[in-house]
Design a protein around this nucleic acid. Sequence first.
DNA 1: TATTGTTATACTCTATAACTATA
DNA 2: TATAGTTATAGAGTATAACAATA
Lengths: 143, 143
Amino acid sequence: MTTKNGEAMKIGEQNACRAWQLLMRFFFMQRGHLPSWGARFGLSPVQCHVLHLIEPGQPIPMSRLAETLSCDASNVTGLVDRLEARGLVRRQPSAADRRVKVLELTAAGARLRSTVFDRMTKPPESLERLSADEQRMLVKILK
Amino acid sequence: MTTKNGEAMKIGEQNACRAWQLLMRFFFMQRGHLPSWGARFGLSPVQCHVLHLIEPGQPIPMSRLAETLSCDASNVTGLVDRLEARGLVRRQPSAADRRVKVLELTAAGARLRSTVFDRMTKPPESLERLSADEQRMLVKILK
DNA sequence: TATTGTTATACTCTATAACTATA
DNA sequence: TATAGTTATAGAGTATAACAATA
């Protein structure tokens, strides 16, 4: 348990696995919270995700959404249809490639995104007791 | 920026917000990966979640699933129907309350769960370079 | 030929309401 | 009366295949 080399590696691996397990637990916990969370803004989980992906003033092609969401391009069509019907996003033709349509937030979309994620970035209090070192560590993890 | 009291608090809050933003980014990243991940085992994202929630030898009432998944009890019925049809879980009557049905993993369910989460607990390499202190910090966060 | 986005189809997921059986 | 689970229904999410326009 206190050997200089081999055992230390083992402990390092154990810690990594434990950390990963905790992150997974965090992920599934958030996954449970997201539906009722998003419902406050009339947003489904995927719609929250899409809103998170499209940054204001930074349009992205629809194909990029399909990749990031791990779903077929055909599903993005309906997804964007509903968001566009609510006036949150807008389809724009791409000058570079006439096959492509890029998505951008409308003013209302940007406002809603800000509302949703301003609240989201208000951490659950427990996070406010962390040191600068701990914050740096999170940056490392999330690569 | 270097005042002793008020400014230090401010920086602490900034770090907490930054950490929370990064965790959110992690969450949405995982959310994007989960569909194709689960598909390898023929599991939808919710089914992965359910499998994660039912620990072997630790049956839980169906109502608990509805709470944790933030969905209506009526949805759990169909969800469990499909998992039961695949032989992954089993409904059992509760001795204490005859209204309640508890869910437990079948042998196949426990095997699949182990397969899925053994892979999941294999962290993405970057995690293996973390110290014990850093692991303890994660425990603190995930409360 | 390959790629972007669309339509069509079927199945799963989720929200709502009404119902049964227990408590 | 209140709660656990079910049924029924409708809309949203998602996988598959076929198609049009463009590269």
